[in-house]
Design a protein around this nucleic acid. Structure first.
Lengths: 331, 331
DNA sequence: GAGGAAAATGCAATCGATTACATGCGGCCA
DNA sequence: TGGCCGCATGTAATCGATTGCATTTTCCTC
């Protein structure tokens, strides 16, 4: 019976038909637990992410899930992943044979914990997506954040801005580091200074963008344009500026990153670097499943880099020729 | 060995210690597949939702996952669930012993398919959340949409608005129906007419709110306030109005529904009915796991109703005493 | 100290699909 | 027509944890 189901295997047409008929009639369904036990395979992948609640990740998860289902895999999610016990949690999932591979969207897991998982004794197939470490020994799928950030910054420079600041992502995060590097490179290339007082610490959350705005308005001398590490902080930042009567793009031009669905409908519509999130999720899932089903671990890590696209909207404008001091008009 | 792990079971302290020592030493981990096969249990729940990419659902999923992990369950996700084959997919998941229970966030699955799943031959524990059918034979966890919509509408009426319209959710969706009913009830109670031309068909997506705005501006006579079935359409709608020079709340007051994180940072900050999404997810997960672990199916369906909260922000304003025709100022 | 009850442990069967191996059947060639 | 090859199918072992049952050990009471 098992033979007939591994389709055109080695059974005669007659028996195959009989088996399928019996399956139809009795409503037989394969018991995954039995198969898993025997084949030491679960046909399930584990997706570990920092925050499902965040649209950015949930869109990617959407694409991952779609691809996985297409290839007959289930998707287990592990949210809020990083933490002191992430190593133990990973261990449990894989040693216990619950998942065949790990798709990691969280760059802040300790490298050594990952190595412990992927090397011989355990040998879990692993693909890092989005927040992939650069020269990583694993398969990675990501966008070229450095270049994208450079493009975003050049866009501001191209509009005539010279005084440009940056809202950083979370400290230590790979994406933050790369985006800041791209920003710095564009500034350097254009011969512009990066002023320390125009670099704002934030995270990737709206509330942190809001807080950055408070520090921004307190500045004696303000930049005329800002590049935010992601759309959420950009949106929080603008929301904060408005409370002080500053308007975008009149008083400041702003570029975000990610091009969330909300960015287009925000006021003003947000200029942003669009990340190919669907492609990212799909390709990562493909890569992981290929890895799971492929030759046992003799494949060299492949690094896929996708490119982002600058979507220009109304939040960025040409610098007024006579730069007026931002008026503190009240609402 | 299995006995010692089902803790203070019936082993002497000595053997227990020896077993644990051995576990430590050899790095033994329980194989889920083996356990699943024997116990006919997977310690996994399946969460079926219409769209993970949507923040509304992803926040709920976040809460569900947290509660599930706390109780030792894994979370499998099935996205874009409704569809012609949802019945078959459900069947496969459960007959194949991959999940112990179903948490359904999608109200559009056929009732008969669910009944087939929950009744005797299969008997899958099921909890419906968010989009629960009213008098459903299953456990449900939801918010009181009718009442919440009524509160939202009353808020507009209280601000002096008399000409009020509604942007509907997707046709046939339980939430849409309930929210429209609440709107109608508030209007009726206040002795106001519900004008058919002020009821806009939309879905729950921004693009549909945007499209509704086009139809809105084409009206000969416009309402002074609108109640949107959710925040996304509200945001799309406002974005559309702006393209025609209409401003909120100057030209129109607008109430949304859900209170997404973006609502507070939008411009203008959106008045919205806050749904207790974390509580909703957590309680639904608790209920499902209780059901799974509880007495075999002799429990009567329990219906939990949570209440929403009106969050008043700048998108709603008192009706100007002399209602001026909306100026078509250009950007 | 013996008898018996209770507790602890050993043993083997079980869950269901897979798979290696053995057996059976038919056809083909000499 | 006999022998051999290969395909098709039957049979049984296996994966690992659990669990019912049998057996042994412990401990208490008379």
């Amino acid at each position: 019976m098992s033979r007939a189901l591994s389709n055109p295997d080695r059974v005669s047409e007659g028996t195959r038909a009989r088996v399928f008929a019996a399956v139809e009639e009795t409503g037989y369904t394969l018991n995954q637990a039995g198969r898993s036990l025997r084949q030491r395979t679960s046909r399930t992948i584990l997706v570990a992410l920092p925050d499902i609640g965040n649209t950015f990740f949930s869109t990617i998860l959407d694409a991952i899930e779609r691809e996985a289902v297409l290839r007959g895999y289930g998707v287990l999610v592990a949210n809020r992943f990083a933490g002191h016990d992430s190593g133990r949690r990973l261990h449990e999932y894989f040693l216990s044979n619950r998942a065949d591979g790990l798709l990691l969207l969280d760059g802040s897991v300790q490298l050594e914990q990952l190595l412990a998982l992927t090397s011989p004794p355990i040998g879990v197939p692993l693909v890092m997506a989005c927040e992939a470490i650069a020269q990583s020994p694993f398969h990675t799928v990501k966008t070229d954040n450095v270049f994208a950030a450079e493009v975003a910054t050049r866009h501001l420079i191209g509009l005539g801005h010279r005084a440009i600041g940056h809202i950083r992502g979370p400290k230590g995060n790979v994406l933050s580091i790369e985006r800041e590097a791209g920003f710095a490179r564009a500034m350097a290339t254009a011969g512009l200074d990066v002023r320390a007082s125009w670099m704002f610490e934030a995270g990737f959350e709206m509330s942190q963008g809001l807080a950055a705005a408070e520090r921004f308005v307190a500045l004696a001398e303000r930049p005329t344009a800002m590049f935010a590490a992601n759309d959420e902080t950009a949106i929080g930042f603008l929301s904060g500026l408005r409370r002080h009567g500053l308007e975008c793009p009149r008083d400041i031009s702003l570029v975000g990153f990610d091009d969330l669905a909300f960015a287009a409908h925000f006021w003003p519509p947000l200029t942003s670097m669009r990340q190919p999130r669907e492609a990212l999720g799909r390709i990562a899932a493909e890569a992981l499943i290929d890895l799971i089903e492929g030759e046992p671990r003799r494949r060299v890590p492949r690094h896929t880099v996708l490119s982002s696209e600058l979507i220009v909207r109304a939040s960025t404008a040409r610098l007024a020729t006579a730069p007026s001091a931002p008026a503190l008009a009240s609402l």
